[in-house]
Amino acid sequence: MDPGAIKEEIANSIRTAIPALNCFGYCPDSVPEPCFYVGEIEIDFDRAFQRGMDEMRVTCRLLVSRADDRAGQRALDTYLSGSGASSIKAAFHAARGAPGQPALGGLCDDLHLTRVQGYRMYEVGEVKFYGAELIVRIIGEG
Rank of each mutant, 00 (worst) to 15 (best):
P32A: 02
D29P: 05
L111F: 06
I138T: 12
R51V: 12
P99T: 09
L113P: 04
E40P: 00
F36I: 01
D44E: 14
D109W: 00
D2S: 13
G106Y: 01
L104P: 07
E40I: 09
D54A: 15
S81E: 13
S83L: 06
P28M: 02
E33S: 14
M53F: 00
D69V: 06
A90C: 11
I43L: 14
G131K: 05
Y37R: 07
R120A: 13
K7T: 02
F129Q: 04
G84W: 12
S83A: 15
F129P: 03
C60K: 06
R51T: 13
I139H: 03
Y37L: 05
A75R: 14
P19E: 02
I88D: 08
L62C: 03
L107M: 09
N22Y: 04
A11S: 04
D69R: 12
Q117C: 10
L104Y: 12
Y130R: 11
Q101D: 11
A85F: 05
D69P: 08
G105L: 06
A11G: 02
G125H: 08
G100W: 11
N22Q: 06
G52Y: 06
Y26E: 12
P28D: 02
M1P: 13
I14E: 01
D68P: 03
E9Q: 15
P102Q: 05
A5C: 00
L63Q: 09
T78P: 01
P3R: 12
A17P: 02
G4F: 11
E133M: 09
V64G: 09
D2A: 04
A67D: 15
R57S: 11
L113H: 08
A98I: 03
G97N: 01
I14H: 02
A95M: 02
F92E: 07
S81Q: 10
V116D: 12
N12I: 02
R15K: 15
L76N: 06
Y130N: 13
V116S: 14
Y122Q: 09
F45Q: 13
V58C: 11
T114N: 12
R115D: 14
A71S: 15
L63M: 13
K128I: 01
A71F: 07
D77N: 15
L113Q: 08
E9H: 05
G25T: 06
F24E: 00
V127W: 04
D109T: 15
Y122R: 09
E123R: 14
T59F: 05
D46Y: 13
M1N: 07
G4N: 11
A71L: 15
F49N: 10
Q101S: 15
F49A: 14
G140R: 12
V124L: 05
I41N: 10
P102Y: 03
D2H: 07
P99W: 08
M53H: 00
R70C: 05
R61D: 08
M121D: 11
R51L: 14
V116C: 12
R51P: 00
F49R: 13
D68K: 09
G118Y: 01
E133F: 08
L62I: 15
D110Q: 12
G106E: 00
